[in-house]
Design a protein around this nucleic acid. Structure first.
Lengths: 200, 200
DNA sequence: TGTACATCAGTGAACGCGCGTTCACTGATGTAC
DNA sequence: TGTACATCAGTGAACGCGCGTTCACTGATGTAC
């Protein structure tokens, strides 16, 4: 049984992490779920990933860089999810429910995505992801059988976005008393947004 | 011209501030509008109010204490505003517009109010203010001529709350592109929420 | 197959900073007599 | 009207802490020949 000390140190982990960038983003998600995005520190992420505190700077430069990458990833994930749902159904309600489910399941990403003061809005990767998510949302509504057209289309899109975003924000903020709305965000959301979307 | 040095020091300000509690809350609003609620530091507020850095502890204990007071004040302000509007009109749209206008005009309060992890949710003054605001919102909807009754009433209330809260959050977060929605949150909001509230 | 070298990824010590909190204190105010 | 005293509001020095950032460095990898 030969230990190759050039590849793995006595401490039990390799000198090169392998995928430190990914590990730092994952650690950031965990940290944000615990303490919110603004409490985040690069030193804490380094600790969670088991590397020295100066290592994160190699991959992200600074804290804003890391949060920019996280936001971009969030917009990508949301875009994928909306597109996936749209391929399976024509129901606007299901798209809305998917939006809320994304917010609850990816709380850390969601919180960062909508606090642009935390990251670099001009970053090209982020901007592209953001735009793609916007188009997924737009396409989800526009392609429906009874979708409105003309100036109404834009208003309908903003109404739909507002109601699902608002429900998600209130849910995440704990503003909705559980004795009224239950424990299941998906079921509660379905009842609430149905009122808007069911209208002709 | 007699200077009474016992009341006013040579530095030009009295030893006792007079209304430091109020001044610190006002300074907090300014600081939050600049850098968000989590960047807030008691030392910075003391600097803005022109007192020593240890003074804030006298009035609020710690940072959470100050934010609790600010959130409570915000719920009071919102409650007053909703009640005022309700007394003037039967229009649900105007109540919704008032909610959004409150969020934009009192951005700092609004941001803190819906981040309960920043303050002490159990504080009795805060809890009372919060409940009062909830009742104002409920009363605003329940009293309308065409208000739904029964289980629909609760769903209608959550729908209305979600859409105005979502619109406000998206607006404050800069998520709504200005070329689509203009510069005036009130006008944009009126168009967007009209779609929901106009439904019978 | 082996050697030399460039490049990349992560280290660890050092620095300066702003923060929250504590604490003995002093200035100012209000009240009892 | 004046004096004594309790109470309150704010001071300023001190402390320890975690942070971001810098920088010369070393371990590991990949490539050219």
């Amino acid at each position: 049984m030969v230990m190759r000390m050039t590849e793995e140190s006595a401490a039990g982990h390799p000198y090169h992490h392998g995928n430190l960038r990914r590990a730092l983003l994952t650690a950031a998600v965990a940290a944000i779920e615990e303490s919110g995005p603004t409490g985040l520190s690069l030193r804490d992420l380094a600790r969670r990933a088991g590397v020295s505190h100066a290592a994160p700077a190699h991959h992200f430069g600074d804290k804003a860089g890391l949060l920019t990458a996280l936001a971009a990833e969030g917009f990508e994930l949301l875009s994928d999810e909306l597109t996936r749902i749209r391929a399976e159904t024509d129901s606007l309600i299901e798209i809305g429910v998917g939006y809320v489910r994304f917010a609850v399941d990816h709380r850390a990403h969601f919180e960062v995505m909508f606090r642009p003061e935390l990251y670099d809005r001009a970053d090209p990767v982020l901007a592209a992801a953001r735009q793609r998510a916007g188009e997924s949302l737009r396409a989800g509504i526009a392609g429906l059988p009874d979708a409105p057209v003309g100036p109404d289309a834009e208003r309908a899109r903003l109404s739909a976005w507002s109601i699902v975003h608002g429900f998600a924000a209130l849910w995440l903020g704990g503003a909705l008393p559980t004795d009224q709305v239950g424990q299941d965000p998906e079921a509660a959301c379905r009842a609430v947004i149905g009122r808007l979307f069911a209208a002709p």
